[in-house]
Simulated scan of single mutants.
Amino acid sequence: MITGAGSGIGRASAQAFAREGAKLALLDQNEAAAEATAVETGGIVVPVDVTDAAEVEKALERAAESMGGIDGLLNSAGILSSKSFGSIDPEHWRKVLDVNLTGTFLVCQAALPYLLKAPGAAIVNIASGQALLPSLTGSAYAASKAGVMMFTKCLAMELAPNIRANTICPGATATPMTDSEIPPEDTVRRQKLADAYAMKRLCVPEDIANGILYLMSNEASAVTGIALAVDNGRTYH
């Protein structure tokens, strides 16, 4: 089950899982975008606002019913904020944390009864390289993603040995979310961003999807509670 499946990392992950033969439930607030992913992957579309607890519970019930259970959960839904601390109002702060952190909590909690019934179940939550090493702006985003990282470590402790829980921390990735902050045509700013990374490039969604695929797979059966940086060498975590 994938939240934020309509674009970016969520969509690339759905494609990667589909190639491995997985049944998929594609959750997204943007139903049309999720439908486009479904055409590529064969997954079922479940529209949901991850900040609404009642919607989340119904969405998880529908997803579990359609797939005959849930054995893997990827929380990819999120929003970006690069506002400086001095310019953040309380409403903006709450919105960023509601989507990125509380949304992840609500989905994990609603999924728990289904995951407990599935041998080898796994959770992967998407945090950010900003959770490991913040930039000069974006404190709300960094705080929300650091919260996701620590929340996932807590899940790993509480849910073992039945369920593994790991975080993936992407570097700047060429997704619609990133494009909304730094448009592709702004090559100067994008190159300046890339120059902060050892590999001198931005990630692409497939880079992150490959890491997620590993963490969700049986090959990672001894891996839980980690924060895996896939960031072209920005944090050296």
Rank of each mutant, 00 (worst) to 15 (best):
A165K: 06
P184S: 09
L132H: 03
G120Y: 05
P134E: 05
A140I: 04
T175S: 02
E185T: 14
L115G: 09
Q130W: 04
P176H: 03
A172Q: 01
L132I: 14
T152I: 04
A174N: 13
I126V: 15
T173K: 04
T175C: 03
A111V: 05
A172W: 01
K153H: 14
A121N: 09
T167P: 01
L116E: 15
A131R: 04
L115V: 09
I123W: 02
A142Q: 06
F151E: 09
S180Y: 03
P119T: 08
V188R: 07
E158K: 13
L115H: 11
S135N: 09
E185I: 06
K192W: 06
A118D: 13
A172R: 00
N162Q: 15
C154R: 10
V124F: 08
A140M: 00
A122K: 07
E181Q: 09
R189I: 02
I163P: 01
N125Q: 09
L159Y: 14
K192C: 01
G171W: 00
A127C: 02
L193C: 04
G171E: 02
E185P: 02
K145Y: 08
R189Y: 00
A146M: 08
T137N: 12
T167S: 15
I182H: 05
G147W: 05
S180T: 12
M177T: 06
L112K: 15
K153C: 02
F151Q: 13
Q130R: 14
S180E: 10
A143Y: 02
N162A: 13
P183D: 13
E158W: 03
A140W: 00
L112E: 14
I182T: 15
L116N: 08
T178C: 00
T187C: 00
A194Y: 13
G129I: 02
K192M: 15
R190A: 12
T175W: 01
E185G: 05
L115C: 11
L116A: 12
D179W: 11
C169S: 00
T152R: 03
P161F: 04
P183M: 07
G171N: 03
M157Y: 10
L132N: 05
K192I: 11
A172T: 06
A142P: 06
P161G: 03
D195F: 04
A127Q: 00
A156Y: 07
S180C: 06
N166G: 03
A142D: 08
G120F: 02
T137C: 01
A172L: 04
I123H: 12
C154Q: 14
S144N: 10
L132P: 05
P119V: 07
L193K: 11
Q130S: 15
E181A: 11
L133H: 12
G147T: 12
R190C: 11
S135H: 06
A160L: 04
A143F: 01
A122D: 04
L132A: 05
E181M: 08
V124K: 10
P184Q: 10
G147Q: 13
K117I: 01
A118G: 12
A172S: 14
V188L: 09
P183C: 08
I126E: 10
S139E: 14
V148H: 13
R190E: 10
A111W: 01
D186A: 04
L133S: 10
S139R: 00
A146S: 15
E181L: 14
S180V: 07
G120K: 02
L132E: 12
L115Q: 11
A118V: 13
P119A: 08
